[in-house]
Write a protein that binds this DNA or RNA. Structure first.
Length: 467
RNA sequence: GCCCCCAUCGUCUAGUGGCCUAGGACACCACCCUUUCAAGGUGGCGGCACGGGUUCGAAUCCCGUUGGGGGUGCCA
């Protein structure tokens, strides 16, 4: 066994992959990479109600999307907690035999009842000294020793828990199956985990787990509890209320690099004034000691801003490739899509989107049989007194105009100046007639890319609607 | 209720006793550029929760208050 640190990420497969889990995984991965350690993936699937094979694959896929590749030499696993039930039970029995645990025949209802009567919540240690033998309907409880448990946490420092505030918790259910606290510790011991980096919600569990490590005769790992991610109401991100599925962001065209970079700046910041930094630098600089102590708001707007930055930084052909899946689901007839046309506008699109899913809408007019005219845009631009004239005069000018954006622009400029107007105004009706919207890629560059017949047809069609 | 954690612009953060008249980023606003919208550039708005200490000196250390969060299962 080497003295390299062994980190671990231990999600339970409850549906889709959570952005909070993603950040925890990334913290562990960055640390693994820098320290030359190992990243152990363990699927905590002991609760049968939340267990499904495709969810496990979902976790592996999500990690891989984030750049945590299961074939990387520093990656180990996945292990499945459910496969280790025998070890968990054996450890529980060792604890019992060593006097660290005892059987209790109280049902959850009875425990609750006693708590109600005494006015003190939780289990009161009723069976501690009753010397019960194992039997049906009996749970095994840990005998919490007296004293104080000090959790040494890399993020928070020493956290003290008075043991008398901790009840004798259940190790084995009445059906004999092991509980999370036990399973988690036994697995960490078996997998020789040395560093546990997880979300703050586990902090109250930690003294219990540390007692288990000690009762099992082991030295507890280094703990680190990172702050939770919260929503706008400052509540822990929840899959019921909040948009937390990594998959969903992926579908919207958030780039993995942007997601990774953004997630890493939640609770931590790289040195200097820039927060958009390459992963290699993050690996180099990330320290648990520097992680903030307070919850961080997962801000989709800022994520988008990061993403826009990453999109603009892409080489053009990479951007074009990245757009392909989004273009494939465009709302135009499939046979009208023209890759060459898209390639020509791509540079103009690249600076105008924050996510890839915005791309199809921005270029749809090239591929639709007719421009999809937005009514507000039409009403706003076609009501001007020059709308009809500019449409018809420009249409006429196009017949002889050289088909290149400069002359295309010059033609309209000449007309505009002759009327004492501004190009910003006069291009509007033309833009709406051709693209259907008031905003979009630069007009003359777009016209240049389109077929002359088609442009003229759309201008005439607008003209017909006007009169 | 009990236990634990936390507290710098609206948000994410820098800051580890003097470099702070508190820096950056997102958002917002204005201007510049400009064929729309973006992008880019320039500038602006805006913060150390409060009260006590400690100290020559506190955003930084201590105590309290208030406010937020997490946990409190025969879930993980």
């Amino acid at each position: 066994m080497s003295d390299r640190p062994r980190y671990r990420f231990a999600p339970s497969p409850t549906g889709f992959f959570h952005v909070g889990g993603a950040r925890t995984a990334l913290y562990n991965w960055a640390l693994t990479l820098r320290t030359g350690g190992t990243f152990v993936l363990r699927i905590e699937d002991t609760d049968e109600s939340r267990n499904s094979p495709e969810w496990t694959q979902g976790i592996i896929d999500a990690l891989s999307w984030l750049g945590i590749d299961s074939s990387h030499p520093q990656f180990e696993g996945p292990y499945f907690q459910s496969h280790y039930a025998e070890q968990h039970k054996a450890a529980a029995m060792r604890l019992y035999e060593a006097g660290h645990a005892y059987w209790c025949d109280l049902t959850p209802e009875q425990v609750q009842e006693r708590a109600k009567e005494s006015g003190k919540p939780g289990y009161d240690g009723y069976s501690r000294d009753r010397g019960l033998e194992p039997g049906p309907g009996r749970v095994l409880r840990f005998k919490v020793p007296s004293g104080v448990t000090v959790v040494k946490d890399l993020v928070r420092g020493d956290v003290e828990f008075s043991n008398d505030t901790i009840e004798d918790f259940v190790l084995l259910r009445s059906n004999g199956s092991p509980m999370f606290l036990l399973a988690n510790v036994v697995d960490d011991i078996e997998m020789t985990v040395t560093n546990v980096v997880r979300a703050e919600e586990h902090l109250p569990n930690t003294p219990k787990q540390q007692m288990l490590w000690e009762a099992l005769g082991r030295t507890p790992p280094m703990w680190a509890h990172v702050p939770v991610l919260v929503n706008e109401q400052r509540k822990k991100l929840s899959k019921r209320r909040d948009k937390v599925a990594l998959e969903q962001y992926k579908e919207e065209g958030i780039l993995p690099d942007a997601m990774v970079n953004y997630l890493m700046t939640l609770g931590w910041a790289p040195a200097g004034d820039e927060e958009i930094v390459p992963w290699a630098r993050i690996v180099d600089e990330f320290r648990l000691e520097d992680v903030n102590h307070s919850p961080a708001f997962f801000d989709v707007k800022k994520l988008s801003a990061f993403n826009g930055d990453y999109i603009r930084a892409m080489p053009l052909d990479t951007f074009i490739d990245a757009c392909a899946p989004y273009l494939a689901t465009g709302h135009w007839p499939a046979d009208r899509f023209d890759q060459q046309v898209f390639n020509s506008v791509a540079p103009l699109v690249q600076t105008r989107v924050a996510t890839l899913s915005e791309v199809p809408t921005m270029v749809d007019f090239f591929f639709l049989a007719d421009a999809d005219i937005n009514e507000d845009a039409w009403n706003k631009t076609m009501s001007s007194d020059f709308a009809k004239d500019v449409l018809s005069d420009y249409c006429a000018a196009l017949q002889t105009c050289e088909w290149s954006h400069d002359p295309l622009k010059a033609a309209l400029e000449t007309w505009t100046e002759s009327r004492g107007l501004k190009l910003g105004k006069t291009q509007a009706p033309i833009r709406v007639a051709i693209t259907g919207r008031t905003v979009g890629p630069p007009l003359f560059e777009s016209i240049e890319i389109m077929k002359k017949d088609e442009v003229i047809r759309r201008l005439n069609s607008a003209l017909a609607r006007l009169s």
